[in-house]
């Protein structure tokens, strides 16, 4: 299969232009709000907390906070990117263009993932202003960042096609992703929970992402790194399968 680079570039450029137009909203505001967490939990409260697995509390929460932004921003970027044209009707052009589904997905999801990866890196840099930390496995860290950005952008793309109201567009990030992230060990180690809740937590998929990501920083984590990587790839596969199904059936895109 030959990919049409002109088409992919057109969609990607169009989506990135939207980011630059809304720079405040899509980049600055998540960076600022995450910084507030660092100030409150890292510096203020963190200074009175004990270290977790030999890592200062301020540093401990960095991977979780980055993941939180990465996931919510990936979802909102990608879902908005595809929801808006279906809502305004401009999707007609993409549907009538000689582009394959793979090209459409690369364009939209690629742009959303790029945005949230940039954001993740910005937060990482900002965090350095508040707390001291080191990344032990930078390559693995970047891989996790990219993989999560792509997976959740795909997930956002699916939500954007599924949603037929603005409310539905926001409900999943708000009602599912944020709670799962907070309960997924962003702010604590799973070991700190009672045994019953430890088991429950293992059903939370976000645990594996945060744990794997934290491993790349500190070389230790709640869950075995191999399992984390496996689970991350598993989510990616599920999202790809869903997107494939949507395009196969024309679900919600074509009557």
């Amino acid at each position: 299969m030959k990919l049409n680079m002109y088409s992919i570039r057109a969609i990607y450029k169009f989506e990135m232009a939207r980011t630059w137009r809304t720079l405040m909203q899509s980049v600055a505001s998540p960076v600022i709000s995450t910084s507030l967490y660092f100030v409150v939990f890292g510096s203020a409260i963190g200074s009175r907390m004990v270290e977790i697995d030999g890592v200062s509390y301020g540093a401990f929460i960095i991977p979780g906070l980055i993941m939180l932004s990465l996931m919510t921003q990936s979802i909102s970027n990608a879902s908005f990117g595809i929801y808006m044209p279906t809502f305004s009707g401009t999707i007609y052009e993409v549907l009538s263009a000689p582009v394959s589904y793979v090209e459409i997905v690369i364009g939209y999801v690629g742009a959303a993932a790029t945005k949230s990866t940039i954001l993740g890196i910005l937060i990482l840099i900002t965090a350095r202003l508040f707390v001291d930390y080191e990344v032990q496995h930078p390559l693995m860290m970047i891989s996790f960042l990219l993989l999560t950005a792509i997976t959740f952008s795909l997930f956002g793309f699916i939500i954007g096609i599924w949603a037929d109201t603005f409310e539905k567009l926001q409900i999943i990030p708000l009602m599912i992703i944020t709670p799962l992230t907070f309960l997924g060990g962003s702010f604590y180690s799973i070991d700190m929970l009672p045994p019953f809740w430890q088991t429950v937590t293992l059903f939370n998929p976000v645990v594996y992402l945060i744990s794997g990501f934290r491993y790349s920083f500190f070389g230790s984590a709640d869950v075995n790194i191999g399992i984390s990587i496996g689970m991350t790839l598993f989510f990616l596969a599920i999202c790809i399968a869903l997107v494939w199904w949507i395009f196969r059936t024309g679900y919600r895109l074509k009557s």
Binding site: N4, Y6, S7, R9, A10, I11, K13, F14, A17, E93, V94, A97, P98, V99
Partner: peptide
């Protein structure tokens, strides 16, 4: 200009 150029690219033309 941008929107018309976008259409050309989308349709796979340089």
């Amino acid at each position: 200009w941008d929107t018309v150029s976008f259409s050309r690219g989308l349709f796979g033309k340089p």
